[in-house]
Nucleic acid binder design. Structure first.
Length: 105
DNA sequence: AACCTGACTTCGG
DNA sequence: TCCGAAGCCAGGT
C-alpha cells in the first residue's frame, strides 16, 4: 500500500537534492531504485506539468553539463546553479567531484 | 488501442 | 578502447 510510482519516487529523490549540489540522471534513477531508468528521470522533469517545487535545475547529465538546448532553459538553469554557488568551467561543465549530490548510503 | 518518443545511462562485443 | 543496442516509465499521437 502507498507504493509510490517510479516517477513519484524520482520526484522525491530530486526534492532531496540539497542546495548548492547537483545530481545526474543516472544517480537519481539509482536512488529511485533502477540505475537504468535515467531516461525516466528526464521524462519526469520534462513531463511534470507543474514543477511541483522540484529543483529541476539541479539535475544535469553524467558529463556534468546541462542537457537542455540553448534557449530552452539552459541559461536559466545555469543562472540558478551559479546563484547557488555552483561553478562552471570554460566548457560549461560542472565539477561533479565537488558538486555532485552524494547521499550517505 | 498500439506504437513511438523522450533533459539519459549502462552493458555487451 | 570504441561502437552499437538495450533498458526504464509515462504521455502523446
Amino acid at each position: 500500500m502507498n507504493e509510490l510510482s517510479f516517477s513519484q519516487r524520482v520526484k522525491a529523490v530530486i526534492k532531496s537534492i540539497p542546495y548548492g549540489r547537483v545530481a545526474t540522471y543516472g544517480q537519481v534513477a539509482f536512488l529511485a531504485g533502477n540505475h537504468r531508468a535515467a531516461r525516466q528521470t528526464a521524462w519526469v522533469l520534462h513531463s511534470s506539468s507543474n514543477n511541483d517545487g522540484l529543483p529541476w535545475h539541479r539535475v544535469v547529465n553524467r558529463n556534468g553539463k546541462i542537457s537542455l538546448p540553448p534557449g530552452e532553459g539552459l541559461e536559466e538553469q545555469r543562472f540558478l546553479l551559479e546563484n547557488e554557488g555552483v561553478c562552471f568551467d570554460d566548457d560549461g561543465k560542472i565539477d561533479l567531484n565537488r558538486f555532485m549530490f552524494t547521499p550517505i548510503i
